[in-house]
Structures are given as C-alpha cells and as structure tokens.
C-alpha cells in the first residue's frame, strides 16, 4: 500500500511531503467536494485490481504565516489482494475521521493529533523547503505514519441495521442513524475487492440531485453537512442513472405525413411522366398504329 501525505508549511504551499501519487485521480470529483474541508473519496473500479482512497481536510494545529488553518490530505492506494492490515488501516482512518467529525465541527480530534505527531513543524518546513533532498527522512516519515495509524485503537462499529436492504446506490447525512456504519461496510467491501464501486464523504452536496452525474455504478455518499447540507439527512436511495437514449430520429422528412409523400418533387415528376405517357398511348391508339 502506498501512503501519500500532503500538507503545507508556514512558508510553502501545499505539496506532498513524503511521496507523490502517480496521478491526480481525485480531480474528477473536484466539483462535488472541497478538499480543504473534511472529505473522503474511495474508488475501486471495475477491471482494475486496486483501490484508491483520499482523506482530506484534517486540521492541523499549525497555521500558515497569515494565520490560516493548515490541513492534511492522505492519499492511499493499494491492490485488492493486499494484506489485511492495510485495509484495516484505511478503515481505521475512515472511522476516525467520521468520529472526529461527530465530536468537532472542524473535524479536530484523534486524527489531527496523530498526524501532528508524525509531522512536527520543523520537519515539515525542512522537507517542503527542499523537495529533492532528504529521501531517507521521507521514507522514515512514511514508516512512522503507518506505524502510528496501525497503533490506533479500532473504533467500535455499529452493526448495520439488520434486515435493512442496503441499496446499491444511496445517500445519507453522516450522522444519520446507521449511515456511517453502512458507509464503512461499503468501504470495507470495496477495499477487499468483494465489490466494485465508489464511496464518498462529500461536503458540497446537499441532495440526491447533486450527485446525479457523479458515478453510474454502485455508489455510497455521505453528506458532511458542515457548511452545506444537513448531516442528519436520512438515508435515501439514489435513482438509477438514466439509460442513454437510442440513436436520434432522422431529421425532417422521416416523420412526414403520408399525404405529403405525394407532394414530393419526385412524385410529381413521376406523375407528370405517367400522364404524358398515357396521353401518348392514347394518341397512338387513335391513330390505329398497329403494335
């Protein structure tokens, strides 16, 4: 599993501290969420043997030189057949994030402290100031990060409501009853490869309508609800995406009125020709031209 941590220092803007992911896959979801606030993307698509998870908006105690909030972004990528503990780590992180949001509006909690512990300010300053040096330190950082996360106490997870059919596609407020449990279950399934699809914690959506174009497949969405939307929105099913329409009908003449068929120039010409021919035949018959 790869873990990438992004944050900023007092002087230097956001950048990955230890290593950078290969692609910015999360840009696809840029319309639905603001990474500066707590959010989560989990993507495990058909045909690809790996999953990708992004957690962002985890506040730090540090501030930038203008006094603004600094936050962390974690990007994790792994293959379906990874060790159990990797999946456990991801689940742990996700559940921590949700729990922290329950406690504090800004999402400041266990995860913040953990990441602050892994990234003290001087180190961050140093590493960001010299992007091409300190390879060893960066590896150390990753190791420490993994170790700290692994040492997190697993949080108790509510069992999903029994008997309730979990929809393929659903949306709920994060603090709605059973929502986070269902979410974590879905996440777990995605990580293990049992299912394909996506699970997101989004902070710019408030209704089902907002996520209509997000993803056609299996989708679980939690509404973060800090600035936008209601975090207690009850779970509701997302409508199936509309099937794409058939080939478009031929323009203009295809649905033309039957009567009109007669009026086409071709038709008229043919008619004219026929009348002429009959006339000619009549003339010939009158004059008794034997044929």
């Amino acid at each position: 599993m790869q873990v990438h941590l992004r944050t900023r220092s007092r002087a230097i803007d956001y950048a990955f501290v230890n290593s950078a992911p290969d692609s910015r896959w999360w840009d696809t979801y840029a319309d639905w969420t603001a990474t500066e606030r707590p959010c989560l993307h989990a993507v495990a698509e058909d045909g690809e043997g790996h999953w990708r998870v992004l957690l962002s908006g985890i506040p730090s105690v540090r501030t930038d030189s203008g006094g603004r909030l600094i936050y962390y972004t974690l990007v994790l990528e792994g293959a379906h057949d990874t060790a159990e503990q990797d999946a456990a780590i991801v689940l742990s992180l996700a559940s921590c994030l949700l729990a922290d949001l329950d406690e504090d509006e800004q999402g400041r909690g266990v995860l913040s402290d953990l990441l602050d512990g892994v990234c003290p300010a001087p180190e961050v300053d140093r590493l960001l100031a010299a992007p091409s040096e300190f390879a060893m330190e960066r590896k150390d950082l990753t190791t420490r990060l993994l170790a700290s996360v692994a040492s997190l106490e697993p949080l108790p997870r509510d069992a999903p409501a029994a008997g309730r059919a979990t929809f393929d596609r659903w949306i709920a407020g994060r603090s709605a009853p059973g929502a986070s449990a269902a979410f974590l279950t879905r996440l777990s399934a995605l990580l293990s490869g049992k299912e394909h699809g996506q699970a997101h914690l989004l902070n710019l959506v408030s209704e089902a309508e907002d996520v209509a174009e997000l993803f056609p497949g299996r989708l679980a969405v939690l509404v973060e609800g800090g600035m936008v939307g209601d975090p207690a929105m009850p779970l509701e099913r997302l409508p199936e995406p509309k099937a794409p329409s058939g080939p478009p009908a031929p323009p203009g003449s295809s649905g033309a009125h039957p009567k009109v068929r007669w009026r086409t120039p071709m038709a008229r010409t043919s008619l004219a020709a026929l009348i002429l021919l009959l006339l000619l035949a009549g003339v010939f018959w009158i004059f008794g031209v034997p044929f």
């Binding site: 840009d27 840029a30 990474t35 500066e36 930038d64 603004r68 909030l69």
Partner: peptide
C-alpha cells in the same frame, strides 16, 4: 461554502484566520 468560511473568520468583532483553510486543489 466559501463565503461562510470567509465570514466565519470574523465573528463577534474578532478576526480568527484560524478558521479559514487555504487552497490545495484547483476548483
């Protein structure tokens, strides 16, 4: 979201930039 963030940093006649995050991804 953005407007709330900005206004939220100035409440009760105290300016708290700590409540405003910076940008890390384009939008």
């Amino acid at each position: 979201n953005a407007d709330n963030s900005v206004t939220g940093a100035l409440k009760a006649r105290v300016f708290r930039p700590m409540l405003m995050p910076g940008t890390s991804d384009p939008s």
